[in-house]
């Protein structure tokens, strides 16, 4: 059975294969089809990857600096951020920086130890693609995107904090 991924709030078959630790050996020949390569692999083999004429994605580990791919963002179909443990929150800042500071507009994927209880925050920080840990049911997880209708602070999904909307609502009410 193909692996499943949440994209655009729908569950689809996943066409991407991640390579590199802990997702396989980066020294082996690349498999057919779209691949997600680790940052170091991208840096070493960017020409080879371009020559494949297949969609390319890169994945970042928690300590990887998104500035390292800032100039290459147009070449990726997917940027993925790995969560070795869901309690390691560095990826939230990485995502926010990619979306705001570096202006990345393509697919931004969270994968690794990701569960439904992280989806609301991940989506707010700019992720729009989610590969959950195997024991999580992605269909059931969709409900978590709407856990909250209220957001006090601005973030990537909506930079305007509630207090600026309250002010507008208050003016309309008056």
């Amino acid at each position: 059975m193909p692996e499943r991924v949440i994209r655009g709030r729908r569950v689809e078959n996943d066409v991407w294969q991640a390579i590199g630790q802990p997702h396989g050996d980066a020294t082996q020949p690349l498999p057919q089809g779209p691949v997600l390569v680790p940052l170091a692999y991208w840096r070493e083999h960017r020409d080879l990857l371009a020559a494949r004429r297949q969609p390319i994605g890169v994945w970042l580990a928690p300590a990887d600096d998104p500035a390292a791919i800032a100039d290459d963002l147009g070449r990726f179909s997917v940027v993925a951020i790995h969560f070795p443990k869901f309690t390691d929150g560095r990826g939230y800042s990485t995502a926010a920086l990619l979306r705001t500071r570096y202006g990345y507009r393509g697919e931004l994927r969270a994968f690794g130890d990701v569960g439904r209880d992280q989806l609301f925050y991940l989506a707010r920080c700019g992720f729009d693609s989610f590969k959950l840990a195997p024991h999580h049911d992605p269909e059931a997880a969709l409900a978590s995107f709407t856990d909250f209708s209220v957001r006090y602070q601005g973030s990537v999904d909506d930079p305007v904090p509630l207090f600026r909307k309250r002010a507008v609502a208050g003016r309309i009410a008056r």
Binding site: T87, D88, G89, Y92, A96, Y121, C125, Y152, Q153
Partner: peptide, 16 residues
Amino acid sequence: ILRQWSTFHPEFAYLP
């Protein structure tokens, strides 16, 4: 104002 800003801040829910 700090309370509201910090409540469910999505970037800072899994700090060190």
